[in-house]
Write a protein that binds this DNA or RNA. Structure first.
Length: 109
DNA sequence: CTGTTGACTGTCG
DNA sequence: GCGACAGCCAACA
């Protein structure tokens, strides 16, 4: 891959873009892929500048909680988008997270 | 340059 | 299982 020492954000964007529909990823998984699971904060920061090309609504915390929804214009938007992809959200939390969880290292799709 | 903040996670008690 | 602290890196004041 032509992926090289790109900016931290670029890596996050690249990974999030690879998230297939109906699947979700976690900050820890992405951060770990970047080199450190503790860099999950940077993932959130990067997504704070999330371009329209990045489905940030597919990125949730380890608990499957839609912590990022607060940054969305619509509080229900993130949940609505996930539900639209076949996911089940309840109380701002993803049901059967393991079932829909997708890891950057798992390109098996 | 220094300090604070941020869509988090892991470890310790 | 839950609360508190530490670690991680980058941007902003």
């Amino acid at each position: 891959m032509t992926i090289q020492k790109e900016n931290f954000f670029h890596k996050v964007y690249a990974i999030v873009r690879q998230i297939p529909e109906g699947r979700v990823s976690t900050y820890g998984a992405i951060g770990k892929n970047l080199g450190s699971a503790k860099s999950a904060r940077m993932v959130g920061w990067a997504l704070n500048n999330c371009p329209s090309d990045v489905p940030a609504h597919r990125v949730v915390n380890q608990k499957g909680l839609l912590t990022g929804k607060i940054h969305f214009e619509g509080i229900n938007l993130m949940q609505q988008l996930l539900e639209n992809e076949g996911l089940v959200i309840e109380n701002n939390q993803i049901i059967d997270l393991e079932k829909y969880l997708w890891e950057p290292s798992c390109f098996t799709q």
